[in-house]
Amino acid sequence: AVSDRLIGRKGVVMEAISPQNSALVKVDGETWRATSGTVLDVGEEVSVKAIEGVKLVVEKLE
């Protein structure tokens, strides 16, 4: 799938994300809905860990 190429890519949080709420991230110039197990604020850099349906699963870039 096209989205599989995004695993391992870096992105930027466009809307705050919490474990209860998905929000938008920008990866390679494209906007995607994403979820995370932690709270992520706007502007934080993230890494794509997986794809669940049409959502990216991201975590904060260390």
Rank of each mutant, 00 (worst) to 15 (best):
V42H: 04
V48F: 00
V54F: 13
S36G: 05
A16F: 14
V42L: 06
E45P: 07
W32P: 09
E45D: 06
K26P: 03
E52I: 13
V2W: 10
R33Q: 15
K26F: 13
G43A: 03
G29C: 11
L24P: 04
T38F: 08
V54A: 14
L24E: 04
V13W: 02
G11M: 02
G11S: 02
K49D: 02
L56K: 03
I51N: 03
V48R: 01
E45G: 06
R9C: 11
V54G: 15
E45Y: 12
L61R: 06
I17F: 13
M14Q: 06
L61D: 06
V13T: 05
E45L: 14
R9V: 05
T31S: 11
K26Y: 13
N21R: 11
N21C: 13
T38D: 14
V58F: 00
E52D: 13
W32V: 10
K55V: 15
G37S: 14
K49M: 10
K26W: 14
V58G: 01
R9Q: 09
I7A: 03
E30N: 06
R9L: 11
V25A: 01
V48A: 01
T31Q: 11
L24H: 05
E59P: 00
V13D: 03
L24Q: 05
D4G: 09
L40Q: 02
R9G: 04
L56F: 00
L56I: 09
V12W: 04
T38E: 13
S3T: 11
V25Y: 00
S18Q: 08
A34R: 00
D41K: 14
N21H: 12
G43F: 04
Q20R: 10
E30T: 05
R5L: 08
E45Q: 11
I7L: 08
V57L: 08
K49F: 04
K10V: 13
D28C: 14
A1P: 12
G8L: 00
E45T: 11
V48H: 01
R9Y: 05
E59H: 04
S36N: 04
V39S: 12
D4N: 12
S22A: 11
G53D: 06
E30C: 13
Q20I: 09
I51A: 04
K49L: 13
E15C: 13
S18P: 08
L6T: 03
V57M: 04
P19K: 10
S22Q: 10
S22R: 06
M14H: 04
Q20T: 13
L6R: 04
M14G: 00
G8I: 00
P19R: 09
T38C: 13
D28W: 02
D41E: 14
V27M: 03
D4Y: 00
T35L: 09
T35W: 06
L24V: 08
G8M: 00
K26M: 14
A23C: 13
V48P: 02
E30L: 07
V12A: 03
T35H: 06
E30P: 07
A23Y: 15
